[in-house]
Write a protein that binds this DNA or RNA. Structure first.
Length: 263
DNA sequence: GTAATTGTTCATGT
DNA sequence: CACATGAACAATTA
C-alpha cells in the first residue's frame, strides 16, 4: 500500500512508538532489501543508536539517527511496520528487526522483497542520486507546470514518474485523474493549461484527504473512486456508470468513461 | 494452471 | 534523447 499517504502514516507511527528509544540490537533477516550496505555494517551502525526524528520525501522515509546519519526505508509494494512487545507477534516477513532497550521491537515487514533499507549521511544527496522529482505534497504550481512543459506521453504515466514528481503511485494517480475528470490516457500535450492546473490542485487535495483518513480507503469520501475500485466497480457519482479499466505503464488503471472523456 | 498485485529498474524498439 | 512496452524482481491470492 505504500504510496505517499501510507508512508506518511508510517512516519506518524514511528513518531508515536519508536522515537528516542535506545536500540539494543538490529537484525537484518534478508539481505536482499539492503541497498549499497552490507549486513554487518548496518547492524553495527544501528546497534546502540537512537532514532531522534523522522522525515518523509515522496515514498521514502528517513529516520534520523543520533550518529548524524539517516536510516532510509522504501516500502516497495508490500512494506509495512509493526511495533510490538512480544516476539511472538513478529510479522511473517520481517526483514529488519530493531530491538529496543525497553524490550519492545520495531519490524520492517516486506513480503515481496521490493523494499529498500540503507543508511545515508545526507538526505538531499540521496534524493539527488535517486533523481527524485519534488515531493508531491510540497511541489509548487510553477514547478509542476515547468516540469511538465516540453514533455509528451500520457498524463497518468507522468504522474507515476518519480523523476518528475515524487510520491504518487498507481492507486492515487487514478484518484487524482478521476477527481480532475481527465481520462488517464490523455496525452499531456492535449491538456489545456486549465486542465493541468486542475491536476495540480487535485494532487494535494487527494493526498491530503487520504492522509486525513489515515490512508484507509474504506473511509474515503463517497465522491472518491478508490473505495469502488475492484469492489462494486461503479462510478461513485452515478451508479449507472460502470468503471472501465485499461493498462497504462503496465498498471491496471480504473476510470469512469462518462466522467473522464477521451479528448 | 492463470492472472493479478498499491514499485522500481533495465533492455529494447520506435 | 524521449517515450512505450515488457520483463524482471518475489510471494501470495482470486
Amino acid at each position: 500500500m505504500p504510496e505517499l499517504p501510507e508512508v506518511q502514516k508510517y512516519k506518524q507511527y514511528i513518531d508515536e512508538t519508536s522515537l528516542h528509544q535506545p536500540i539494543k540490537e538490529a537484525t537484518i533477516k534478508n539481505e536482499k532489501i539492503l541497498e549499497n550496505i552490507n549486513k554487518a555494517d548496518i547492524e553495527n551502525h544501528l546497534r546502540t543508536n537512537t532514532i531522534t526524528q523522522t522525515t518523509r520525501f515522496g515514498k521514502y522515509l528517513f529516520l534520523s539517527l543520533k550518529t548524524d546519519s539517516w536510516l532510509v526505508l522504501h516500502f516497495g509494494m508490500t512494506g509495512n511496520l509493526k511495533y510490538f512487545s512480544n516476539i511472538n507477534e513478529q510479522p511473517a516477513h520481517t526483514r529488519l528487526l530493531l530491538s529496543f532497550v525497553n524490550n519492545h521491537y520495531l519490524a520492517f515487514d516486506c513480503q515481496r522483497l521490493f523494499g529498500l533499507v540503507t543508511v545515508t549521511s545526507n538526505i538531499n544527496e540521496y534524493i539527488k542520486n535517486k533523481k527524485l522529482g519534488p515531493d508531491a505534497l510540497t511541489i509548487k504550481k510553477k514547478e509542476f507546470m515547468d516540469n511538465l512543459s516540453n514533455r509528451t506521453g500520457k498524463i497518468k504515466t507522468i504522474l507515476l514518474n518519480q523523476h518528475i514528481i515524487s510520491g504518487i503511485g498507481n492507486i492515487y494517480a487514478d484518484e487524482i485523474l478521476f477527481q480532475s475528470r481527465i481520462h488517464p490516457e490523455t496525452q499531456i500535450n492535449n491538456l489545456s493549461k486549465d486542465h493541468i492546473q486542475s491536476v495540480f490542485s487535485h494532487i494535494s487535495f487527494v493526498l491530503q484527504t487520504a492522509i486525513e483518513h489515515d490512508a484507509d480507503i474504506s473511509n474515503y469520501p463517497q465522491t472518491f473512486l478508490l473505495p469502488h475500485r475492484r469492489n462494486d466497480n461503479l462510478c461513485p457519482l452515478n451508479k449507472n456508470h460502470k468503471l472501465s479499466t485499461v493498462k497504462i505503464s503496465g498498471r491496471t488503471t480504473y476510470y469512469c468513461p462518462y466522467h473522464q472523456l477521451k479528448p
